[in-house]
Design a protein around this nucleic acid. Structure first.
Lengths: 94, 94
DNA sequence: ATAATTTGGTTTATATTATAAACTTATTTA
DNA sequence: TAAATAAGTTTATAATATAAACCAAATTAT
């Protein structure tokens, strides 16, 4: 009847992050923060969760002298997102 | 950028309930329980929340001698559901 | 007849999750 | 060189989901 919704993606902020990364293929932490309106703390936690699940990869580098955290979606993340969208349809179709 | 997701609807079980009621216009508690696979306790709590928000109406009646709880979606609930679906699109469109 | 089971739930306790506040370290700017 | 800003992380708290425990009435079994 209803397909289960991946709890990792069924979260407003994490879904926003994934959505951004699908469009952008690469995004810096401050950019994601600005686009989502999240606090840095919340964003940091959610980025960690997505990264721990292998849905995104996080590269810690430098931009000049300042630290710079770059996020990218992984193939597993893309697949999970697509599956999530499919699952959602089982709830939305009338 | 991203439209906020009504937290009342952004819940797997509550979304299932709403989805069922949109298709059915009326459903009994045990039927919803069976269709969603939820425990009675969980379902009872979530039905209360939807009812408190005015998204569904709950009629407590009898079927023969046994109690019977009937749920129906309200116009406000239908509107909220439609808004939720609209909001979701801002995350899903690539 | 009465004990056990089932039905149809509700209440309450617990586990999980989301979120922000507080903190850290380094870098600019005043 | 002191204050402010940038870029995060860690930790504490608030909110939420979920199931376990419970209750009352009806049905079935002994």
């Amino acid at each position: 009847m209803f397909q289960p919704l991946d709890p990792l993606l069924h979260s407003e902020l994490r879904l926003s992050i994934m959505s951004l990364l699908i469009s952008a293929e690469e995004a810096e932490f401050p950019y994601i923060k600005e686009q989502t309106g999240a606090t840095a703390g919340n964003l940091s936690v959610q980025v960690d969760k997505l990264s721990a699940a292998g849905y995104i990869e996080v590269e810690k580098t430098f931009k000049g002298k300042r630290p710079c955290t770059i996020c990218r979606i992984t193939p597993a993340g893309l697949k999970a997102f697509e599956d999530y969208v499919e699952a959602l349809k089982s709830y939305l179709k009338v």
